[in-house]
Write a protein that binds this DNA or RNA. Structure first.
Lengths: 214, 214
DNA sequence: ACCTGAACACCGTTCAAGT
DNA sequence: ACCTGAACACCGTTCAAGT
């Protein structure tokens, strides 16, 4: 369906680049945002294979090395992509409802965002999550909710880590093929219920842990 | 310390290949086992970068395409490597002790084996585990233990999947750098305790689930 | 500062040969 | 059946130039 060679129009960031050949020194009007938009479009159309610097450059109608004026490296680009994507997670009102429900909805929304970008999930794992400002903000909100449940300090760090591992881990298995030996592949619906249920088990354990009294 | 260019002696599978240049048709004495041994040695010395077909071939003193006589593709080689490595997990006597302890020790041993091969962990995740005969056998032992606890059918499949996600997920975070936002990096010891504790939470949940009576 | 051309040092894989 | 030589279609990144 989607031709990929010679169709400059698209989701975002592409250049015409047909006849107008540039000589060294001529600007192409590239920006970091345009590069990032092209990366998102490439990911959507061609999967993770589309995220090579050379294919991105082709898509933008520039020489491969032109990208390095706006992005430090391919790793830098991917890190930014991962962090940006987490921005799609709407965080619930941190002061409303009980802390456990807040964590459940936030975790579930993160899970949904990850499932919406299946090609990125292996990258989240390979880089062990995101470290950008969005990820930091998300983590701080989770810590605030845990604090409202009386969980703080090292305990909160550990609980957060457990929840992150659980969320990314399940997203990885939901987006992949079958892992567990045996023919019984769970449906996405069943997997999501399992995710929610096992999340409940973890929260039971987190809430029940003996804590140093404040 | 370890030179990598011109030292044919090593852990396993390397060839002399110095003066003896072969012409097409001359055998190099390669076997699939030799290729796999070279892959393990390359992984240990050079990390995952050492697992390229061309570097493997250099290490073995053969042309790059010679490997394809013993291995279908790079993916095939890596799948075999992942499954083989799981063979290091000693499974406890399945008929001794209570089922929960059996699962705990088996899960913990798997965790330890994964930590012993940190470079492989991202590969396990990217491929969502291993699907070879060793992985299948391991899964069946886990299912047998769950069955002794009265957990069978879909419930057992779901429990097994949860445990696998939990184990590989924690291994990924233990072998990686810090993920969770904030400066508080957990020590390996603390992480292992957290792994064991959260495993306990999951098993509590698995054991407490209402079940259809047999 | 932003871009091109050319190059470097790589990849996985295939195809046609040789024994 | 097992191997080599050569090739194809790629990579990420750097360096020297041009405006």
């Amino acid at each position: 369906m989607a031709s990929e060679r010679e169709r400059p129009s698209g989701t975002g960031g592409e250049r015409p680049s047909s006849a107008e050949r540039r000589t060294p020194g001529q600007r192409a009007g590239l920006t970091r945002d345009a590069v990032m938009a092209a990366a998102r479009a490439a990911l959507a159309q061609d999967g993770v294979d589309g995220l090579s610097m050379r294919r991105l450059a082709r898509r933008l109608g520039v020489a491969p090395n032109a990208l390095y004026s706006h992005v430090a490296s391919r790793d830098d680009l991917i890190d930014a992509l991962l962090d940006d994507t987490l921005g799609e997670v709407r965080s619930p009102d941190p002061s409303r409802g009980d802390w456990r429900r807040g964590i459940e909805t936030m975790t579930r929304r993160t899970y949904d965002v990850l499932l919406a970008h299946p090609d990125l999930v292996p990258l989240y794992i390979a880089r062990r999550g995101a470290r950008g400002p969005v990820a930091v903000a998300l983590g701080e909100q989770m810590l605030a909710m845990l604090a409202r449940g009386g969980i703080e300090g090292d305990e909160a760090t550990e609980a957060l880590r457990t929840l992150i591992v659980h969320t990314i881990g399940f997203a990885a298995f939901a987006t992949g093929d079958t892992l567990p030996p045996g023919p019984s592949a769970l449906t996405p619906r069943a997997l999501e219920r399992l995710f929610a249920r096992s999340l409940g088990w973890l929260l039971d354990g987190i809430a029940a842990e003996p804590r140093a009294r404040s």
